[in-house]
Every structure is written in C-alpha cells, then in structure tokens.
Design a binder for these strands. Sequence first.
DNA 1: ATCAAGCTTAGCCATTTGGCTATCTATTCG
DNA 2: CGAATAGATAGCCAAATGGCTAAGCTTGAT
Lengths: 110, 110
Amino acid sequence: MAKLDSIFHCLADPTRRAVIAQLATGASPVSELAAPHDMALPSFMKHINVLEAGGWIETQKKGRVRTCRLCSGAIETAESWLDQQRRIWERRLDQLDDFVATLDDERIQK
Amino acid sequence: MAKLDSIFHCLADPTRRAVIAQLATGASPVSELAAPHDMALPSFMKHINVLEAGGWIETQKKGRVRTCRLCSGAIETAESWLDQQRRIWERRLDQLDDFVATLDDERIQK
DNA sequence: ATCAAGCTTAGCCATTTGGCTATCTATTCG
DNA sequence: CGAATAGATAGCCAAATGGCTAAGCTTGAT
C-alpha cells in the first residue's frame, strides 16, 4: 500500500516523532510545537505538512493560529502492519518448535 | 533515538516491507528474495544492506549464497515506540471523557 | 491606522535515496 | 580446466529530503 510509505516515512525523522509524541499529550498550535526544535519555521512547517500528508495529524486554522491534533488512522495502520508481520513470524517459530519436538519424539521412540 | 530513524526508514519502502514480509515466513537467499521484484540486483542489494543496517535482518554467507533472516530487535523497538505513543494518547482521551463526565454531573447537580 | 504575531510562499542549496550499467570476484558444476 | 551461478563493487544519474533566507500575507492588539 502506498499509504504505508508515507506513514512510515513520517516516523523516520526525530523532529516528526517528537511532534507526534507532543501531540499525543494534546492539541497544539504550530509555533508551540516548533518551540523545542532548533530550526527555522519554514523548515519546521515542512515537517507539519509531511505529517498531515501522511495522515498522522490534522490541522485547522482559526484566525492566524493553526492548531494541530493527532488523528487515529495512521497509528492504527502502522501498528496493524507490524502486528501482522510479528504474528506471521511467531507462528512460524512455533511451527519450528513443533518440528523440533517431533524430532525429539521420534528419537525417543527408537 | 537515532536507531529509530533507520528502523522506520526501512519500512518506508514497499520493496523493503515485502522483503520483511517474505522473511517472516522463513529465511531466504538474496536471489530468491529478489526474484519477485522487477529490479536489477545491485539495486535490490542496496535494500538488503539498508535492512541489515537498520537491524531488521541479519545475513550470513555460505559459499556463494548469502542467506537472510529476520531478527527480532527492530520490530520490537518499532512496536514499542508506537505502543507508547498510543498509550499516552488513549490515556489523555480517557481523561477528556472523565472531564466531560464531571461537567455532566455538575449540570445534573443543578 | 499601525504594528506585531503567526504563519506562508518562493527559491536556493547540499545530501540522501533509489534506480541503472558495467565490471569483478568467488563458488560450484560438468 | 572452463563455464555458469550468486553476489559485490564502482560509478553514474534524477528525484526527493531537509535545511536555509527573504519576502509576503492575514489577523489581533493598540
């Protein structure tokens, strides 16, 4: 899925992860989000745009303030993909265990 | 953490996600992994190297065959970061619910 | 009406990414 | 030995990324 590209691309940058982490504790205007990051505002805004395009946040402007809030879709898609891979992987490890157990049983039978 | 950059960067590409998904079902040599992807081998090898650098896979060469297998560290780190954000976010939503409930109670009291 | 605050837009730049071809090395098979 | 197989290395290239500065442009406060 092409959406996964942009969802995970958002997470591959410390500034964007920090924004997500901060927004998890509550909505915030852009300038407040930008404050902790030593970076010019246009540079920071690019990250905001990337996060919005990736479906991590949504924003709305009231007066001259743009407020950003986290939305649920992206994190669910991300976790669900990871979960699926982990399940496939763990199921296979279990099958390996069973296989080894079978070998052991056969050895005992002798 | 700088490691998270490379861990998530690995996931931001469909070829690399496909390799992870395929390796979840069992270890594989490079050429077998490469087969489904319409891409020259050196290009594909770059993805393998990125995945190895990101801690998603480890490889070992026997004779002329390099075998790749998934390792557990990366997926755990990734899921754990996501889980942590989700928990922070959900806890805050619960607090909002409580707050709204308090408001309702106060309205009823009147 | 003016001025500051809070973005926005435009355009520049270095580096990274993700692809390619061509060539080389190291194994294995006949 | 000689040829085919499986990767590895080197080097090229266009596009994307992540940063900057210098102006704009609304909106809110005085």
